[in-house]
Simulated scan of single mutants.
Amino acid sequence: MFIRSERLFLRPGWPEDWQELLARIDDEEVARNLAQVPWPYTADDARWFASQPQHPRCPHFFVTLPTSSEPARIIGCVGLAQDGDAVELGYWFARDFWGRGYATEAARAVIGLARTLGHRKLMAGQFVDNPASGRVLRKVGFTPTGQQRQRFSLARGCAVDSIEHGLELAEPGNCDDPADMRVA
């Protein structure tokens, strides 16, 4: 499964992506904002993640910047994951690509796909000391649920307060039609 947005190309990972993945996520400031990423992040971690198969209802994507002159570079990752009974949106971007709207654009693309896959509600968590992630979530339609929970962060090695967000999705639509990427 592939997704093209205005500036980005979202694609599945391949085992040979492990070195580029390692180069992008090997930053403690990136890893500490994520629940499932260890620190330090090793070559074995990158090999494992790059070789993971896609889940048909909860895919994840490497985010790339397509260019005509060189191979597209991985700049981050976005995807859906099962978290108990909920489906959760998650993302990360290499620090060099923060503040450019890429997380917002990639999240919108995956939300459109989530609707197409028949998901009716998405959840997302934001560590309390990562307000930038909360701004991204609000830009794409998530609202804080009023709940905070402790999430274990592998990179930090401890539980961290997380602000929970939810997004109700409209009926399934066409993920290729920007006019049909609405939320409920």
Results as ranks from 00 to 15, higher is better:
79 G>Y: 00
103 A>H: 14
55 H>G: 14
43 A>W: 04
78 V>E: 01
50 A>F: 10
51 S>I: 08
69 S>W: 05
92 W>H: 11
90 G>E: 01
92 W>K: 07
65 L>Y: 06
48 W>S: 12
58 C>I: 05
74 I>P: 01
68 S>G: 14
44 D>M: 12
86 A>T: 05
82 Q>N: 02
73 R>M: 13
55 H>T: 11
65 L>S: 10
102 Y>E: 00
93 F>M: 12
85 D>L: 03
43 A>F: 04
53 P>K: 08
44 D>N: 09
49 F>D: 03
91 Y>K: 13
85 D>Q: 03
95 R>H: 04
61 F>E: 08
82 Q>K: 14
81 A>K: 06
81 A>L: 10
83 D>T: 07
101 G>I: 05
104 T>L: 15
56 P>S: 15
102 Y>C: 05
71 P>E: 01
85 D>I: 03
94 A>R: 01
49 F>A: 06
61 F>S: 04
68 S>Y: 13
95 R>A: 08
97 F>I: 03
76 G>T: 03
61 F>M: 04
102 Y>R: 13
57 R>A: 14
94 A>S: 15
84 G>Y: 02
62 F>V: 05
68 S>F: 08
87 V>D: 00
69 S>M: 00
99 G>M: 08
89 L>N: 01
41 Y>N: 10
45 D>W: 07
92 W>F: 08
60 H>P: 12
69 S>R: 15
102 Y>S: 04
49 F>V: 14
84 G>D: 05
71 P>K: 15
82 Q>G: 05
79 G>W: 01
96 D>S: 13
98 W>Q: 03
57 R>E: 14
92 W>A: 08
57 R>F: 11
69 S>E: 13
97 F>C: 03
69 S>G: 06
92 W>M: 02
77 C>K: 02
48 W>M: 04
81 A>R: 08
69 S>L: 08
68 S>L: 14
67 T>G: 10
86 A>V: 11
86 A>N: 12
68 S>W: 14
97 F>D: 02
58 C>D: 15
68 S>P: 13
94 A>E: 04
72 A>T: 05
78 V>R: 06
96 D>P: 05
45 D>F: 07
41 Y>Q: 14
96 D>E: 15
88 E>Q: 10
94 A>Y: 00
42 T>N: 09
88 E>F: 03
42 T>Q: 11
72 A>W: 04
76 G>C: 11
84 G>K: 00
86 A>D: 13
62 F>D: 02
40 P>Q: 00
49 F>S: 03
57 R>S: 15
87 V>T: 11
92 W>Y: 08
80 L>Y: 05
50 A>V: 13
77 C>H: 11
69 S>K: 13
81 A>H: 12
76 G>I: 03
47 R>Y: 10
101 G>N: 11
95 R>N: 01
60 H>I: 04
63 V>G: 00
77 C>Q: 11
70 E>M: 12
90 G>N: 02
85 D>F: 01
